[in-house]
């Protein structure tokens, strides 16, 4: 067991060393500490604060794409030019998380490792083809989110593995992405349901690639299957209707205090079609401000 109940890591190595002897990492604490206050689970007996590790807080571009440090906050994700220009769905999602206070301390790595099926950043990571970099004293590995998230609040990572970064592959010029969620209020909200889409168009405006993932309709964030029929078509009303139908049919939601299962299955289709519509318009060069929820009035009662 570690000798100190609370340590502040100055480097990734410091954090891994503490975790090797049983300490659990805390970044912003917006899930971990809130969960303890709510009585979900007590705080771990030994904590290592990872929020001062400079190596975790950078966003860097390389030949393969962009590497986002696990300690990058939502406030940074929603404004960083690399994210808002190339990985806009992730910026849309980060801008919807909690309130300014939540976004100042909440981190992408914290979201990823908390493994909530309702996390706003999860569906964007899936459609953007993100890979998760984990490190322990035993070594490093890169894992797909779909292999990492095993159920509500559970992951395949071992206790001594720290999420150090999220790798986002390079995007084509003719691609766009978007995330929208159904919400009952505009702040301190958790997605009732949500959907992210990534669309790549060819020079004629025809779909070359499309990916869609859903929030809060299954034990984990889920990627939609059976989208290959959409390739080669224009994003018109028929395609958007097909998207909604596919999303609703593949959702396996539960009923809880936020919504019933039938309502979730229906509305996730609406979110999916709006996500694809916004992603395709961005791919075609249209500017839709981050987040789509505010720019397009999702959730407004006076929306036409």
């Amino acid at each position: 067991m570690p000798t100190e109940p609370f340590q502040i890591a100055g480097s990734i190595e410091d954090a891994l060393s503490a975790m090797a002897t049983g300490a659990r990492p805390v970044a912003g604490g917006t899930d971990l500490v809130v969960g303890a206050r709510q009585g979900k689970s007590p705080l771990p007996s030994n904590l290592v604060a990872v929020d001062r590790i400079v190596e975790l807080s950078t966003i860097e571009q390389n030949a393969e794409g962009v590497i986002v440090g696990a300690g990058v906050t939502h406030a940074t994700l929603m404004t960083d030019p690399l994210i808002t220009s190339g990985y806009t769905a992730l910026a849309d999602a980060a801008a919807l998380v909690g309130s300014p206070a939540t976004r100042n301390v909440g981190t992408l790595g914290g979201n990823v490792m908390n493994g909530s099926p309702a996390m706003d950043t999860g569906a964007p990571l899936i459609v953007l083809g993100a890979m998760i970099d984990l490190r322990s004293q035993g070594g490093s590995r890169r894992v797909a989110p779909s292999k990492l998230w095993t159920g509500p609040g559970s992951t395949s990572a071992s206790d001594d593995e720290l999420c150090v970064a999220v790798a986002l592959p390079k995007r084509s010029e003719r691609s766009g992405s978007a995330y929208v969620r159904l919400e009952y209020r505009r702040a301190m909200e958790i997605a009732v349901v949500g959907a992210a889409a990534s669309v790549e168009l060819n020079d004629e405006g025809v779909i070359e690639q499309v990916a869609i993932a859903l929030t809060a309709v299954a034990p984990t964030i889920v990627a939609l299957e059976g989208l290959t029929d959409l390739v080669g078509r224009r994003v018109d009303e028929d395609v958007l209707a097909a998207v909604a139908a596919i999303a609703s049919s593949q959702a396996q939601p539960i009923s809880d205090l936020r919504a019933g299962a039938d309502y979730r299955a229906h509305t996730v289709g609406v979110m999916a079609r709006r996500a694809v519509d916004a992603a395709a318009r961005r791919a075609a060069g249209e500017t839709i401000e981050v987040p789509v929820n505010r720019a397009e009035g999702v959730g407004r009662t006076d929306r036409p």
Binding site: G28, T30, V33, V34, R37, L47, D51, P100, A101, M188
Partner: peptide, 28 residues
Amino acid sequence: DDCECGACMVLVDGQPVNSCSYLAAQAQ
């Protein structure tokens, strides 16, 4: 005491933080 209402808002290095859910030891 659940990070919802903001009555506990303080600034840490100039940024608003819900102090009910922020570890005091992290503010050193």
